[in-house]
């Protein structure tokens, strides 16, 4: 699994690629840690290359969201595929995230 963060136009853009199983999620967490507190900057997470996500991954996303909300910034998930969207639905995350 590949994880990267960029700051573009005043936003953080994270790219997740591949399968984020529980182990991969632990590793990705380290990379994504800065997103927990963006200091007001919006976050865009590019999930177009994401094929699989486990509950740990979801937890990371949730943390990001919580942090962003606390700072008044937005989190947008881009390019989430149907299978993963289904997972979002099953967990109710479909309602709390913004999708593009």
């Amino acid at each position: 699994m590949k994880t990267s963060i960029e700051e573009i136009d005043g936003k953080y853009v994270a790219v997740l690629e591949g399968e984020m199983d529980t182990a991969a999620a632990m590793e990705a967490e380290a990379v994504l840690k800065p997103l927990y507190d963006t200091g007001g900057k919006d976050v865009v997470i590019d999930c177009s290359g994401l094929e699989y996500i486990a509950s740990s991954g979801l937890r990371i996303l949730l943390s990001i969201l919580k942090g962003a909300k606390g700072g008044g910034s937005h989190v947008v998930l881009k390019g989430v595929n149907e299978d993963i969207k289904n997972v979002f639905k099953l967990t109710g995350f479909i309602n709390i995230f913004e999708f593009e």
């Binding site: 937890r59 949730l62 943390s63 969201l65 919580k66 909300k69 109710g92 309602n95 709390i96």
Partner: peptide
């Protein structure tokens, strides 16, 4: 149905 803030981890 809880909001993000309220969802337990």
């Amino acid at each position: 149905s809880l909001s993000a803030e309220d969802r337990p981890i």
